[in-house]
Nucleic acid binder design. Structure first.
Length: 456
RNA sequence: GGCCAGGUGGCAGAGUGGUCAUGCAGCGGCCUGCAAAGCCGCGUACGCCGGUUCGAUUCCGACCUUGGCCUCCA
């Protein structure tokens, strides 16, 4: 089954094939670690985690890099404000980021490069850009010269003329062309900085991704991914730098961009202040429902976040886990879990996760009706490719159980069983009400009464 | 203003030139002491106006409208 992926560069879906069929290289723009990430920041990591899972099935090796940007003016501002070295900020939030991503069921990347560990590569890349006439030093800064790269704007569909006309920022006097962007900037003594041929300074925003991508994945990579809001200027600038630094070699063969997560119809963003932290959501809701929610829309479309959407995701998972719970005693066939063809086909079609989830629903139905080991295996196998349905059903249904006194529940259930046996239904219903008040839902079945204490 | 992506049933959200999305919610029935779950069934969805076509939600054009980028941003 071949994979087709939309390429922002060509604006069309193309059959995917890596440069080296034995080794796929993929880079995702990671966070700048100066505070906790919000759920919008997690969409790309979740979506591209599914892509990584899919690619690993198709190719012998996938090298997936997701960077940490740990040098940046916002980090500096936070460090100055708190009177601590920047590493105190970046270490803390990089660790928090890993925890948050793991909480959403995202597998760790193969490589997690840090910008500060690549200053040498960054300086070298800037030197080669200057040597090639693609960059120039001015007043302690080094700037990329967009006029020296005629293809500038190809990714975002802009030309430099219109960029200048529409520029809403004040243009620094040392720029030759207003669209030129900073590769290196000088640091004052209180700011972090590294020695360089242009004095003590620090890298500009875009250069670190170019340097780290080349250092770990090579000069030409297969897939470069990120949020659509990074398409310009970040990715446009990365292309310009990398291409010019590597003698015109293509930088990334596929550019993939996830749509924005919205909240009340507006982009969730720190500057608008309408953010929900992943950390907070993980504490309040079942993590798997959050992941499911992020996969319920096609990755290129906007996706609106809401409490009712979370509730829907939980209900959906309730149904699927109910099937798995009913099949708990059914032994799985030996060997690895199968991957259902229709579900995989949906993912191969430009990562159509909504379609894949529809297929998963069909598989859940089939498993419930047939009660077979094969059905169970297919449901689990399909779920695994999406990073869903891998926990113990019992754990899913009793995830709020920390606050519930299990022994008391069992005692009440036994009492209710006796009342029902004596046909004292008034008493039985009173006990059920009591359990409901405790946040415990019950379900009578041929195998006895089940209970669940699930948080929303 | 420029560039880009959308507007699908109560909600979410795929998809297609001509019988099925899917999930959640709702309604009717079966089952159940009653619930819950399960099972069976139900609801004339494709922004608006033209055009192409035997036939358009799906293709083309105009219009209305929502959002993203053009500044930090996943």
């Amino acid at each position: 089954m071949s994979i087709s992926l939309y390429n922002s560069l060509t604006r069309r879906i193309q059959p995917f094939s890596p440069l080296d069929p034995r080794r796929v290289t993929m880079y995702l723009c990671g966070p700048t670690v100066y505070n906790y990430v919000h759920i919008g920041n997690a969409r790309g990591p979740v979506v591209f985690d599914v892509l990584a899972r899919l690619l690993r099935r198709h190719y012998p090796q996938v090298v997936y890099a997701r960077n940490i940007t740990d040098v940046d003016d916002k980090i500096n501002a936070a460090a100055l404000e708190q009177g601590v070295p920047i590493s105190a900020i970046t270490d803390r939030f990089a660790a928090a980021y890993r925890e948050d991503m793991a909480g959403l069921g995202i597998g760790p990347p193969d490589i997690e490069p840090h910008a500060t560990a690549h200053i040498g590569e960054i300086v070298a890349m800037i030197q080669s850009l200057i040597a090639g006439g693609h960059a120039y030093a001015a007043e302690g800064h080094v700037l990329f010269n967009v006029d020296a790269y005629p293809a500038y704007g190809a990714l975002s569909g802009r030309d430099t003329e219109e960029l200048i006309a529409g520029a809403r920022v004040e243009i620094a006097p040392y720029k030759q062309n207003p669209a030129d962007f900073v590769l290196w900037k000088p640091s004052t003594p209180e700011l972090p900085g590294w020695d360089s041929p242009w004095g003590r300074g620090r890298p500009g925003w875009h250069i670190e991704c170019s340097a780290m991508s080349a250092a770990h994945l090579g000069e030409t990579i297969d897939i470069h991914a990120g949020g659509i809001d990074l398409l310009f200027p970040h990715h446009e600038n990365e292309i310009a730098q990398s291409t010019c630094a590597h003698g015109g070699k293509m930088f990334a063969r596929w550019w993939m961009h996830n749509g924005m997560l919205t909240f009340d119809g507006r982009k969730m963003s720190k500057s608008l202040g309408n953010v929900l932290l992943v950390r907070e959501l993980l504490r309040r809701h079942p993590p798997e429902a959050l992941r499911l929610l992020l996969l319920r829309g096609h990755y290129r479309q906007p996706l609106d976040w809401s409490d009712s959407a979370i509730a829907q995701a939980i209900s959906t998972l309730d149904g699927w886990y109910r099937v798995l719970r009913d099949l708990a005693a059914v032994a799985l066939p030996a060997g690895p879990l199968p991957v259902p063809a229709r579900l995989e086909a949906a993912l191969c079609d430009d990562l159509n996760t909504p379609q894949a989830l529809a297929e998963l629903a069909v598989l859940a139905d089939a498993a419930r009706q047939h009660g077979s080991a094969e059905g169970k295996a297919e449901l689990l196998g399909g779920g695994a490719l999406l990073g869903l349905l891998q926990q113990d059903p019992q754990a899913w249904f009793q995830r709020g159980g920390d606050e519930v006194d299990g022994e008391r529940v069992e005692r009440l259930l036994e009492e209710r069983r006796a009342a029902r046996a004596a046909r004292d239904f008034a008493r039985a219903d009173a006990i059920r009400s009591e359990l409901t008040a405790m946040g415990v839902a019950i379900e009578d079945s041929a195998q006895g009464t089940r209970w669940s204490a699930a948080k929303t």
